[in-house]
Computed example of a mutant assay.
Amino acid sequence: MPTNAETVALALDRITAAYVFPERAAEMDRAVRKRLAAGEYDDLTGPTLCETVTAHLREVCPDQHLGLRWRDEPQPVVAVDEERGQAAFLARMRAANHGVRRFEHLEGNVGYLDIRRIADAGEGARVIGGAMELVAGTRALVLDLRECLGGSPEGCTTWCSYFFPDDHTHLKDIYDRLTDTTRQYWTVAHLPAPRYLDRPVYVLTSARTFSGGEDLAYTLQAHRLALVVGETTRGGAHPTGSYQLDAHISVRVPSARGISVATGTNWEGVGVAPDLAVPADQALEVAHQHALTRTAS
Results as ranks from 00 to 15, higher is better:
A273Y: 07
M93E: 15
A217F: 10
V110S: 07
T181V: 06
R24C: 07
T158G: 03
Y218T: 00
G67R: 06
L68M: 06
M1C: 07
E107L: 01
A9R: 13
R84Y: 13
L145T: 05
E73D: 09
A17S: 05
T138L: 01
R224Q: 12
T48V: 05
L66I: 02
A237V: 04
E73W: 09
M1Y: 11
A125I: 01
I15L: 01
P192M: 06
V142G: 06
A121P: 01
V142F: 13
M1Q: 08
A189C: 01
D42N: 06
G130D: 10
R35H: 14
I115Q: 15
R30E: 13
A136Q: 09
H223Y: 15
P2E: 07
Q221D: 11
T138S: 11
G39H: 05
D173Y: 13
D144Y: 13
R35D: 13
R92T: 06
I118W: 15
G85Q: 09
A136W: 12
N4D: 03
D29N: 14
A5N: 08
L171A: 08
H248M: 01
I259Q: 14
H98S: 02
I15T: 12
V261S: 11
F210R: 02
T54M: 07
Y202R: 03
P274F: 14
D173S: 11
V188E: 09
A88N: 12
E107C: 01
M132V: 03
E27D: 15
L245E: 06
T45A: 06
L276S: 03
R84P: 13
R126N: 11
P76K: 03
G111E: 07
E59P: 13
T205P: 08
L44E: 09
L44D: 11
H288F: 04
L171N: 11
C160W: 04
G235E: 00
E231L: 01
A283G: 11
P76G: 05
G137A: 10
L227N: 07
V229S: 04
C156E: 15
T7Q: 07
A222S: 12
G236I: 02
V53W: 12
H65I: 00
A131I: 04
A217S: 08
T182Q: 10
F21W: 12
P279E: 00
V261T: 15
H98W: 14
L36H: 09
V110L: 03
P74A: 01
V286A: 13
A5G: 03
L44G: 13
R195W: 05
L227R: 12
R139P: 02
A217T: 08
L68A: 05
Y19F: 15
N97T: 03
R257A: 10
A31P: 10
P239D: 00
T181P: 00
